[in-house]
C-alpha cells in the first residue's frame, strides 16, 4: 500500500516539476525571442510592424498612395514629438486632460498558442514554439484637451480598443506613457459586466458598484436610471430575457447617471439601440459635454463621429494616421477605404 502511495506522490511531483519547468522555459524563450525580435525589427528598418502575409504588395502600395494623398490634404499629420503645453503658447484656456506620449504596445503572441501543458511541453521539446511580436500600437501620441469630444476611428483590429485600455489604465504600455488622472475616467462598453442570470435591478446595483457608485447613490438614482432606460416594469425580470437593445439601454443609463464623469470613454456605444434611444443618448452625451466632460468615442461609423465630435483621431494598423477636425479626418478615412 505504501509503495503505491509513493508512486502516486512521485507521479504528482513529476507533473508539478513539468509545470514549473514549462513556466521557466517559457520565460527564457520569450526573453530570447524578444532579443531576436528586436534585431529583426531593426534590420527591417523603422517599420517594426509585422505585415501580415495576406496583404499583397500591390494592395499595400495602393494603400500607401491613398494615405499619402490623405496627408497632403492639409491634415495635421502624426508627429513623434508631443506638442507640449500649447496652453500657454496660444493663450487659450485649454487644459490638457489626456496626454498620450509615444505609446507603443506590444503583445508577445505565440503562433498557435499552447493551451495545455502537454501541448506546451511537446512544442517546447520539439522547438516548435514560434512567436510573433504583435505591435498593436506603434508610437502613438496625441493630446486631448478638457471639454473636447474626441472620436477615434480606424478599421477593425487597428488598435482603437487597445488605446482606450491604455488610457483607462487597464493595460500598461510597453513603451511611452499616458498622462491622465485615472480617477476621473469612466469607461463605458456595452453589455459587459452584465450578469444574465440576475434581474435588471440586481444588475443595476452590481454594475453601479463596479463603476464606482456608492450604495446610497444608487438607491437615490435608481428610479432615474430605470426611467432613462425606459425599462419600467422590466426590472424584476432576468436580463437573460431582455432584448439586446434593452441591455444596452440599461448599460448606458447606469454609466451616465453619475455625477458627470470628467472623462467619459465610450467604446462603440452610440451606434446601438433604436433611433429614438440613439437620439436620447446623443443628447445625453451633448449634455455631458456642456457640463465640461471630456469624451472619447470609439466608432466605426464616421457619421457618428462627424456629428458628435470636435476632433478626430485616426488610428490605422497601430499607427496614428491623422489628428484633426472630424470632417477632414473622416473624409480621408473613407477615401482610404474605398476600393480601387
Amino acid at each position: 500500500m505504501n509503495a503505491t502511495l509513493i508512486l502516486l506522490f512521485a507521479a504528482l511531483v513529476i507533473i508539478f516539476a513539468f509545470l514549473a519547468a514549462a513556466f521557466v522555459l517559457k520565460g527564457d524563450k520569450k526573453k530570447a525571442r524578444r532579443r531576436r525580435g528586436r534585431r529583426r525589427r531593426e534590420n527591417r528598418g523603422k517599420t517594426g510592424r509585422r505585415v501580415s502575409s495576406k496583404r499583397t504588395g500591390k494592395r499595400r502600395k495602393r494603400r500607401a498612395k491613398k494615405i499619402a494623398s490623405a496627408s497632403r490634404s492639409g491634415i495635421q499629420e502624426k508627429r513623434p514629438e508631443v506638442n507640449r503645453r500649447i496652453v500657454s503658447e496660444t493663450g487659450d484656456e485649454k487644459e490638457v486632460e489626456i496626454e498620450v506620449q509615444n505609446v507603443t504596445m506590444e503583445f508577445k503572441r505565440e503562433k498557435d498558442e499552447a493551451t495545455s501543458i502537454k501541448e506546451h511541453m511537446i512544442r517546447t521539446l520539439k522547438g516548435q514554439r514560434s512567436y510573433e511580436m504583435f505591435r498593436a500600437l506603434d508610437n502613438v501620441s496625441f493630446t486631448v484637451y478638457k471639454g473636447e469630444v474626441v472620436g477615434i476611428i480606424g478599421t477593425n483590429g487597428s488598435g482603437k480598443s487597445t488605446i482606450l485600455k491604455i488610457i483607462s489604465g487597464v493595460l500598461t504600455p510597453t513603451k511611452g506613457k499616458v498622462i491622465v488622472d485615472k480617477n476621473k475616467i469612466q469607461l463605458l462598453t456595452l453589455g459587459t459586466g452584465f450578469d444574465f442570470e440576475l434581474t435588471g435591478r440586481e444588475n443595476v446595483y452590481l454594475n453601479g458598484a463596479i463603476i464606482g457608485y456608492t450604495k446610497e447613490f444608487i438607491d437615490e438614482k435608481y428610479d432615474e436610471i430605470v426611467r432613462f432606460a425606459e425599462l419600467e416594469g422590466f426590472m424584476e425580470e432576468k436580463v437573460r430575457n431582455y432584448s439586446s437593445g434593452m441591455v444596452s439601454r440599461l448599460g448606458f443609463a447606469i454609466a451616465t447617471i453619475g455625477t458627470t464623469p470628467e472623462i467619459l470613454i465610450l467604446d462603440e456605444v452610440l451606434s446601438v439601440g433604436d433611433m429614438f434611444f440613439r437620439k436620447k443618448s446623443e443628447a445625453r452625451i451633448r449634455e455631458m459635454m456642456h457640463g465640461g466632460s471630456t469624451v472619447l468615442i470609439v466608432s466605426h461609423s464616421t457619421s457618428v463621429i462627424q456629428q458628435n465630435c470636435t476632433k478626430a483621431v485616426w488610428i490605422e494598423r497601430g499607427r496614428l494616421r491623422a489628428v484633426g477636425p472630424p470632417q477632414e479626418v473622416c473624409a480621408a478615412y473613407e477615401k482610404m477605404n474605398q476600393p480601387g
Binding site: 440576475l198 452590481l206 458598484a209
Partner: peptide, 21 residues
C-alpha cells in the same frame, strides 16, 4: 476601501444568487 467592500458584497450576492438561480 468602503467602495471595495460594497463591490465585494455585490459580487458575492451575485454568486450566491447565481448558484441557486
Amino acid at each position: 476601501k468602503r467602495q471595495y467592500i460594497f463591490v465585494i458584497r455585490e459580487l458575492t450576492a451575485r454568486e450566491i444568487k447565481r448558484k441557486y438561480s
